[in-house]
Amino acid sequence: MLKRLSLIAAVASMFAVAACGSSSTESGLTVFAAASLTETFTELGKRFEAAHPGTKVTFNFGSSSTLAQQIVQGAPAGVFAAASPATMKTVADAGLAGTPTVFVQNKLEIAVPPDNPAEVENLKDLTDPRVKVALCAEQVPCGAAAAKALGAAGLTVTPVTLEQDVKATLTKVELGEVDAALVYKTDVIASGGKVTGIPFPEADQAVNDYPIATLKDAPDLARRFVELVLSQQGRDVLTKAGFEAP
């Protein structure tokens, strides 16, 4: 009987450990950030840890809307950096976020394979039915931005696919499955030359704002991390990756 009790205790303690494993303590910070911030925030996280010895920054990168859902459902996060004001609003409406600040903007570019087989030069070229185009689904920020830009230009594009996120859209271009796609400038830069970016003027009509906020009950470290992101140092890292200052 004693043996059985101790087994139950062991199982129970396992759950307990699992439950508190991801909460942020005074020396740790969990940051939820949009997938497009993966490279830049990882870099900033390292700098933050160097500046605050003994602290550990843990990131959860993902689709902004998924992250917002997770936060609303009680995921323990200290900072939330979203790729759209709408997703940040979900969290703010739940009373879980402090005042958000727009820290960067991201602009769309036309991404084409390096050899540009369909000879795409501008946004209008995407309307040619012989050009295979991938767009993000309208439900995700890059898709909403693409729809806005195309709408501003008064163009109708029939894509072959509406991808679930910007990375998947980019992959289709990298593999040459499509001739062109509308993705963020930051993604073009992050691809390291596997796709070529073509800027287009209508992109200015569909600028994506990235808000950042500390979350309810977050440790002081969260505020200091947001300060780093908003500092000149943070801005340098972000603009190098293709983001633009708001």
Binding site: A137, T161, L162, E163, Q164, T171
Partner: peptide, 9 residues
């Protein structure tokens, strides 16, 4: 499916 065939209604 979404990777190979994409997503179009």
């Amino acid at each position: 499916t979404i990777t190979f065939a994409g997503n179009f209604p």
